[in-house]
Design a protein around this nucleic acid. Structure first.
Length: 771
RNA sequence: GCGGACGUGGCGAAACUGGUAGACGCAGCAGACUUAAAAUCUGCUUCCCGCAGGGGAGUGCGGGUUCGAGUCCCGCCGUCCGCACCA
């Protein structure tokens, strides 16, 4: 790693599993607890009833535990949360300031936070329901389409909603349905694709405006975690409600007239236009209002009756950090039968994670380790139980960059050095972190900012989301279904050019293995590349050049041994070009170069090379500095080297002036490539007679005089098709360019006998003749 | 299902602001050097027609806007990433 020349400051190396690090997770958790940013409430987890353990989402396969095959239940357990939603608005609006972040990441975060303006609407209980439930008050729903309120034909609540649970008490069928909803996945993707199902509760509410009696249903498409866990259903103007209403024969009442003319009344099958905004109909006093105006009017009317008000709702949920796992930072709390939940005093931090436990696959080992959980209450001194949940490891990664900047300080979480270094000038991570890690880090930094611990509210000024590195996957499946992977270095892959069929055989014994194409490099698939072997064989610069040249950084990179060889070949050619130049007449001193080039009496071939060299320098500067693409920068230096080779082979370019041009061109090639290939370029810079360290040398600027061209090629099109090329002076008048284009013999063939209708001239680029 | 991206030769890719599609490289083919091979160097290399000058087609598919579309718009198809307990 060191030899790759990445300039990492290893003296600051840290590990988030060190107590010296996670102590500060605990310390900040306690500060957040004091401010109410950390709090406790129940959350839903996947519960494996056989292993008696909480499962991660990907450990639930088709609704069953991966190890036991038992049907997984959703279970509500107490958990700790960070109130990231308190920061939702600022996290969202501050995205505008992150101009150097990729647009798509900002869009993804904005959508994730998902601000929506809507109205809380209270549906009063019907008299009989109020008597039945023995409760006063209303059923509250949140809606972004208050304009469709008069089209509401029922109200639906989530299975976990208190009303659903209350109704289920005297209703075995409903209780069974609520139970059924508890099974299955907690994943949003599964919830969104599952078949819509529901049951009536037998309870009723009154429409807040008309007093109409509406039934209350339990529906599996209503999420407890969003809004109020209850919705007003408007089948005419919401696709989910429509589907549900069709299935259970509930009434559909059209209250919006299409202004785009896409429908007259709502009927099956569902059309997207039904959900469009429009003008209100069949809505009493609100008829004729636009959707936007109606939202305001209806919200005002509801407010006057104390049955609703406008509210902003975020899609973002609070961050549940409790994990029922052994690994991770212990949550610093103690549960005392007398005093309740008591924070661990700062002086007792860190709460250390025991390092000698052996997980047995069921439950959290910490919960079975009395030495860990048995403790005394810090307040009353009585017997108490330590919290055995640990923190989400995303907590660790939310601030390690701050700790990196404050390395070695055992007295404080961060110090003044964090303010010197932060925000991070250039942060790099995979696109898979676009939402969670990057949002949690932004949240965490804001919390620390608010507490006066760091000055910046945002952690990362520039963000590059790099692609993943892929390599061939070779596998052999044994009879028992075991998959044995092979490293690509141990396999010969032959692709038939005609049939494109591939054949993979083991190098050691020629036996066949299955080729599965490209996939991300991973330990489990054994398709990684050892950087040490690579640098030993080709040097660090070859590895660097290959990676920077093969694909733009945002894209995934397919590993290719031939490509590595090609990168190495190019470096050898560069080395050889410098060597041959120097051994054939010596390096030309700076003063001599200046004297010979300023003379201005260069041959056309010399001028061409000089222009190419300066163009290359300018392009590399732009590619690396502005566009942040490196593959095209490398490509342009390759072109320059090709041009230098042709120039050197030219018998007419052996004079002193030509050698001076080549000297300069080689210097610019070496300088241009040096950010990517530092070690080789450092050496070549010396070979070219330049003193000092290349990496300390000021970047040169392209010479405008060298960039001047006396002829430029103009492309001539007839009706947009390429028909010829003409050469003109770069500052030629439009009329001159036009005349030259129309005079071209091949161009004339295409409008023979007809007058051009129109001639479009794009200066310095092309002429298009329209006939 | 929702959100985000991507789709260009045999392959990785380039084309930045609507203006020469395929730069640069890999692989392949031919030639030079060599007893030979490797390495190196030179040339060719999107497909089809033509001896050639040249012509036709072509950027996932179908439409549209424009003098001109890989690029912009509409509608499809496909692939990938994320969806909150993998981290």
């Amino acid at each position: 790693m060191q030899s790759l020349g990445l300039a990492i400051d290893w003296s600051r190396e840290l590990a988030t599993c060190d107590a010296d690090y996670y102590k500060w997770n605990q310390w900040l958790f306690l500060r957040m607890l004091e401010k109410g940013i950390a709090y406790k409430k129940t959350g839903t987890v996947n519960w494996d009833p056989v292993d008696q353990t909480v499962l991660a989402n990907e450990q639930v396969i088709d609704g069953r535990g991966w190890r036991t095959g038992a049907l997984v239940e959703k279970r509500e357990i107490p958990m700790y949360y960070f109130a990231i939603t308190r920061y939702a608005d600022e996290l969202r609006s501050a995205l505008d300031g992150l101009a150097e972040w990729p647009e798509r990441v900002r869009t993804m975060q904005a959508n994730w936070i998902g601000r929506s303006e809507g109205v809380d609407v209270d549906f009063p209980w019907a008299d009989d329901t109020r008597a039945l439930l023995e409760r006063e008050g209303n059923l509250r729903v949140f809606t972004t389409r208050a304009d469709t309120l008069l089209g509401a034909t029922y109200v639906a609540v989530a299975a976990e909603h208190p009303i659903a649970l209350a109704a289920a008490k005297g209703n075995p069928q409903l209780a069974a349905f609520v139970d059924e909803c508890k099974r299955g996945s907690t994943m949003e993707a599964d919830l969104a694709t599952q078949e819509k199902k529901g049951l009536p509760t037998g309870l009723h509410v009154q429409h807040p405006l008309t007093g109409e009696r509406l039934p209350v249903w339990v529906a599996n498409y209503v999420l407890m975690g969003y809004g109020e866990g209850a919705v007003m259903a408007v089948p005419a103007h919401d696709e989910r409600d429509f589907e549900f209403a069709q299935k259970y024969s509930l009434p559909v009442k059209t209250v919006i007239a299409s202004t785009s003319g896409k429908y007259e009344s709502v009927a099956a099958p569902w059309q997207e236009a039904f959900a469009e905004h429009g003008v209100l109909v069949d809505s009493g006093a609100f008829n004729g209002l636009s959707s936007a105006a109606a939202v305001d009017a209806i919200a005002a009317t509801l407010a006057s009756k104390s049955l609703g008000q406008k509210r902003v709702q975020f899609r973002l949920r609070d961050w549940g950090i409790s994990r029922q796992r052994y690994w991770g930072c212990p949550i610093p709390l103690i549960h005392c039968p007398a005093c309740g939940d008591v924070p661990v005093p700062d002086k007792d931090l860190p709460v250390r994670l025991p390092e000698n436990l052996v997980p047995d696959g069921s439950g959290n080992p910490l919960g079975k380790t009395p030495a860990f959980y048995q403790c005394k209450c810090p307040t009353c001194g009585g017997d108490a139980r330590r919290e055995t949940d640990t923190m989400d490891t995303f907590v660790d990664s939310s601030w390690y960059f701050l700790r990196f900047a404050s390395s070695g300080n055992n007295d404080a979480m961060v110090d003044a050095r964090a303010n010197y270094w932060l925000p991070v000038d250039q942060y790099i991570g995979g696109i898979e972190h676009a939402i969670l890690h990057l949002l949690y880090s932004r949240f965490w930094t804001r919390v620390m900012n608010e507490m006066g611990l760091v000055k910046t509210p945002e952690p990362f000024a520039n963000l590059l989301t790099q692609g993943m590195v892929l390599n061939h996957i070779f596998v052999r499946t044994s009879g028992a279904g075991r998959r044995e992977y092979f490293n690509p270095a141990d396999v010969d892959l032959v692709v038939d050019p005609a049939t494109r069929e591939s054949r993979a055989t083991l190098k050691k014994d020629g036996s066949a293995v299955t080729y599965e194409g490209f996939g991300t490099m991973s330990k489990s698939r054994l398709n990684g590349v050892d950087p040490n072997l690579l640098t030993e064989k080709f040097g660090a610069d070859t590895a660097r050049l290959f990676m920077m040249f093969t694909a733009p950084p945002e894209q995934s990179l397919e590993w290719s041994d031939e490509g590595v060889l090609g990168a190495n070949r190019f470096l050898r050619r560069l080395w050889k070009a410098v060597y041959e130049h120097v051994s054939n007449g010596g390096a030309v001193a700076d003063a001599d170069v200046r004297a010979l080039l300023v003379a201005g009496a260069l041959s056309p071939a010399d001028r061409d090379l000089r222009r190419t060299a300066h163009q290359t320098l300018a392009k590399v500067e732009d590619d690396i500095g502005r566009r942040r693409v490196f593959n095209t920068a490398v490509a342009s230096v390759m072109e320059l080297l090709n041009a230098i080779g042709r120039h050197a082979a030219d018998a007419g370019a052996a004079g002193a002036a030509s050698r001076a041009v080549r000297q300069e061109a080689l210097e610019l090639a070496v300088m241009s490539l040096s950010p990517i290939v530092p070690h080789v370029c450092h050496e070549l810079w010396q070979q070219l007679g330049q003193g000092g360290q290349l990496w300390r040398t000021r970047w040169r600027k392209a010479d405008p005089a060298a960039l001047v061209q006396d002829q430029v090629e103009i492309v001539v099109q007839v009706n947009g098709k390429l028909r010829g090329r003409v050469s003109v002076a770069p500052d030629a008048a439009e009329e001159v360019v036009k005349a030259a284009a129309l005079a071209d013999e091949n161009v004339r063939r295409f409008f023979e006998g007809r007058e051009p209708k129109k001639v479009i001239v794009v200066k310095g680029k092309l002429v298009n003749v329209v006939v």
